[in-house]
């Protein structure tokens, strides 16, 4: 691919990014930040692509750390976002037994 193609993709992706996020309720800012945060963990691909070209101990160590960092970013990011969003999933069920039970469990977990 030529550099022009790369830059074209870059520009188009920028517009997509602007468009997708243009309207978001405040409530979802935190999960959204966390979700996009997970997506940029895609740099892990860079580590994967370079590993077989690397030579010498230093480069291998750097890349293993880079892959580790990227993986933490991806896995941690998606899991944390999922946990946050799970909080919104619960439907406003009858204010009966379920809720206080959950509260007790939380209390014990403390």
């Amino acid at each position: 691919m030529s550099i022009v193609t790369d830059i074209a993709i870059l520009v188009l992706a920028a517009f997509v990014g602007f468009e997708v996020i243009s309207k978001v309720p405040n409530t979802l800012h935190t999960p959204l930040m966390s979700g996009t945060n997970a997506i940029h963990g895609i740099v892990v691909l860079g580590g994967l692509l370079l590993m077989h070209i690397a030579s010498g101990v230093l480069e291998h160590v750097l890349l293993v750390i880079a892959v580790m960092f990227g993986t933490i970013n991806v896995i941690g990011g998606f899991l944390v976002t999922d946990r946050m969003l799970a909080m919104f999933k619960r439907k406003p069920e009858p204010v009966g037994e379920a809720a206080p039970k959950a509260a007790v469990e939380e209390g014990e977990a403390e």
């Binding site: 993709i9 992706a13 990014g17 996020i21 243009s22 996009t36 997506i39 740099v43 860079g46």
Partner: peptide
């Protein structure tokens, strides 16, 4: 690295992150 997935994903986060 000439990698499309990285370009698109990174740039989308860059753009949406700025808006956010």
């Amino acid at each position: 690295l000439n990698n499309t997935a990285l370009i698109v994903a990174g740039m989308i986060v860059g753009a949406s992150g700025s808006i956010l």
